[in-house]
Simulated assay, not measured.
Amino acid sequence: MKKKLLSVLSVATLSLSVLVAGCGGNAQQGAQQGQNQGQEQAGGDQAGQKTVRIGMVTDVGGVNDNSFNQSAWEGLQKFQQDNGLPQESVNYLQSTSDADYVPNLTQFVKDGWDLTWGIGFMMADAVKQVAEANPDAKIAIIDQEVQAPNVESVLFKENEGAFLGGVVAGSMTKSNKIGFVGGVESPVIKRFEAGFIAGVKAVNPNAKVISVYTGAFDKPDLGKQAASGLYGQGADIVFPAAGSTGDGVFNEAKDRKSKGENVWVIGVDKDQSLTFGKEITLTSVMKRVDQAVERVSKDVMDGNFKGGQVVTLGLAEDGVGLPETSKDTVPADVLAKVEEFKQKIVNKEISVPEEPQE
Rank of each mutant, 00 (worst) to 15 (best):
G277Q: 09
L274T: 14
K224I: 00
G248I: 04
K254Y: 09
F239Q: 03
G234I: 05
Y231P: 02
A235V: 06
S228Y: 02
A253R: 01
W264D: 02
D255R: 11
G234T: 09
E252C: 06
S244C: 09
S244A: 14
R256N: 06
S273N: 13
G260H: 03
S273W: 13
G229P: 11
F276K: 07
K257C: 11
Q233K: 14
Q225E: 15
K224T: 00
E252Y: 07
A253W: 01
Q233G: 14
N262D: 15
G260I: 02
S258K: 12
N262Y: 02
V268I: 14
G234Q: 02
K254I: 12
T245E: 09
K257P: 09
S228N: 15
D247A: 14
Q233D: 14
P240M: 04
S273H: 13
T275C: 04
Q233I: 07
Y231C: 07
G232Q: 04
G243I: 08
T245I: 13
E261V: 01
K254C: 02
V249I: 07
D271H: 07
K257G: 06
G246H: 11
A235H: 00
G277T: 06
N262G: 01
T245Y: 12
L230Y: 04
D269Y: 13
G234W: 03
Q272L: 13
G277Y: 12
Q233C: 12
G260E: 04
V249R: 00
K259D: 09
W264V: 05
L230C: 07
V249H: 00
E261H: 02
A242S: 12
Q272M: 10
L274D: 13
F239H: 11
F239E: 03
D271T: 07
D247G: 12
A227P: 00
R256L: 15
E261R: 06
L274I: 12
F239L: 11
K259I: 01
K254H: 08
G267Q: 06
F276S: 04
A241I: 11
V238T: 03
S244L: 14
G246W: 10
V265F: 05
W264C: 01
D247S: 13
A226E: 05
A241W: 11
S258V: 00
